[in-house]
Amino acid sequence: MELRPRVEKFIEKVVDSYTDEEFRINFRMNRRTFNDVLTLIADKISTQDVDVGHHTIPAKAQLLIAL
């Protein structure tokens, strides 16, 4: 099985460096609204359970993926 190339720390290196306009274009909401929504739902989508061999995805990443 061939592994696909991945960008390490994509959110930290790329998404967090977006200008406010780039963030809005890519995620269809402004950064403040995103952070407000994240605050409201983070505890509902976060888990401390770890499946064997799988890392948990942080709430911020889950919301960005959903958008």
Rank of each mutant, 00 (worst) to 15 (best):
E12N: 09
E21Y: 05
I57P: 00
Q62L: 14
T56H: 10
T33W: 00
M1N: 09
Q48F: 01
R31L: 07
F34G: 01
R24M: 04
G53L: 04
T39A: 12
V37H: 02
D49R: 12
L38C: 04
E22V: 08
I45N: 11
N30T: 09
K13R: 13
I45F: 04
D16F: 04
V37D: 00
R28Y: 06
V37E: 10
L63Y: 02
K44F: 12
A61W: 02
T56E: 04
I65M: 02
T19D: 08
I65N: 06
S46A: 14
I45L: 05
V14Y: 05
D36T: 13
L38S: 02
E8L: 11
K44N: 06
D36G: 02
L3W: 12
L38A: 00
L64F: 01
K13Y: 03
D43F: 10
F27W: 02
K13S: 05
T19M: 02
I45K: 05
A42K: 03
K60R: 14
L64P: 02
L40E: 15
I41Y: 11
L67M: 11
A42C: 14
T33M: 06
R4L: 15
I45P: 03
M29W: 09
D51L: 06
R32E: 15
I65F: 05
D49W: 06
I41P: 05
D20L: 12
K44S: 13
V52F: 11
E12G: 06
F23L: 01
V52K: 03
M29L: 12
E22R: 04
E22H: 03
K60M: 05
F10K: 02
K13D: 09
E2P: 15
N30H: 09
L64C: 03
F23H: 06
K9P: 02
N30K: 07
Q48P: 06
D36F: 03
H55T: 09
D36E: 08
V52D: 09
E2D: 15
F27N: 05
R24E: 04
T56N: 06
V52A: 07
M1T: 15
A61P: 08
N35S: 09
I41W: 11
E21C: 09
A61V: 05
L67Q: 01
N35V: 08
L3G: 11
M1R: 15
R24K: 14
E21S: 03
H54M: 11
S17Q: 11
D43W: 13
T39K: 12
N26G: 00
F23T: 04
N30Y: 11
L63P: 00
T56Q: 07
T19Y: 01
K60T: 00
A42H: 12
K13H: 04
L64A: 10
R4Q: 13
I45T: 15
V37L: 13
V52Q: 08
A66Q: 08
R28P: 00
T33E: 07
Q62F: 14
R31H: 05
D43K: 08
L64N: 10
E8V: 08
L67V: 05
D43I: 08
D43A: 09
I65T: 04
G53M: 08
D51M: 15
A66G: 01
